[in-house]
Design a protein around this nucleic acid. Structure first.
Lengths: 167, 167
DNA sequence: GGCTTCATATGATCCAAATCATAAAGCTTT
DNA sequence: AAAGCTTTATGATTTGGATCATATGAAGCC
């Protein structure tokens, strides 16, 4: 899996769920006006496309972010394993529940009105793992506003930034 | 269960998941500055507090919206039933997966910049089931902006509103 | 009936974030 | 090393949504 590789695309029929062994995959949806929205990012040992087992079509694109390896598990395998192995069921359920909580937290973050507060919340939640532009997009801000928020927060002494190159 | 009844509160230890038989329950979180955020609304036959089986404490409040009956299922019961009854496991998983999709759709909606477009998307998604104020809060708008969006959309001929009293 | 409360609705004003513009630093690539 | 790209960064301007103010109609209550 190389950088930019598309593992599946929105509206394609679902084949099953995926496990990231190494590397990183982002799930994104393109809206009608063309701009992309990152919904989830799966890193090593993370699962994605969990919803694929219940829906017939993927509802977002999966694009490779960091080169690595991905394991595909077919839909039928998942369902049969769930029937035979309760531990797997439990683990899978737990995983989905964690996702639900994560999304809830994200929605809560998006409800924060002020850009500064939203940026702080995002950084505290560990969202700042790539570029500022990417962080900004994830929390519905322009990169300009995000840079300014960083600057102001540093000026206020609420944040200290070191080594810009690697965040 | 009467209107305004609190079924559980944020940070209380979890007891299990709940099923709405009749009535309606909203899950909401209060932020630090005191204003509430609706995360989910469960109507008849809906489950809520699914995440309770994996976390030790509730991470939001459950408040009765419309009087009715709610069934509580203990955490241990859920886990043991999952072990013995694969069909239950499957159904539960499906439910969580649906939730994940719902949240993803919601996040996507919140990414819509223009108030007018966001309101349209919300209405199309079936969010307008109560008051305008409530709809506005759910999509991170003030009720004023929401009313204006409705008015403008009607003026543009993109929407027709009838019978204001009951939406 | 009169009172309160809430949802609806709109006008006026303000402000923060978007937009537009520009530039330097860093990094690939040729 | 020069060219081309992205990321970081900030200034100037605009604008759309928030805020504040106000009014009306409907529901509930004593």
């Amino acid at each position: 899996m190389e950088d930019g590789d598309v593992l599946f695309r929105q509206d394609q029929p679902t084949s099953g769920l995926c496990r990231v062994v190494t590397g990183c995959v982002t799930l994104q949806r393109s809206s009608l006006n063309g701009d992309k929205l990152t919904l989830h990012r799966a890193v090593a040992d993370g699962l994605f496309a969990e919803a694929s087992i219940i829906s017939e079509r993927y509802h977002c694109d999966a694009v490779c972010n960091v080169p690595g390896r991905v394991l595909k598990i077919s839909k039928t395998d998942v369902i049969s394993t769930m029937r035979t192995t309760p531990v797997f069921s439990e683990g899978f359920t737990r995983l989905l529940a964690v996702q639900v909580q994560r999304y809830r937290a994200h929605i809560e973050m998006l409800a924060i009105g002020s850009a500064k507060e939203r940026v702080i919340a995002a950084v505290q939640a560990g969202y700042f793992d790539a570029t500022v532009t990417e962080l900004a997009t994830r929390i519905n801000l322009t990169h300009e506003s995000c840079y300014r928020a960083f600057r102001d927060l540093c000026e206020d002494g609420r944040m200290i930034r070191t080594g810009r190159g690697q965040p």
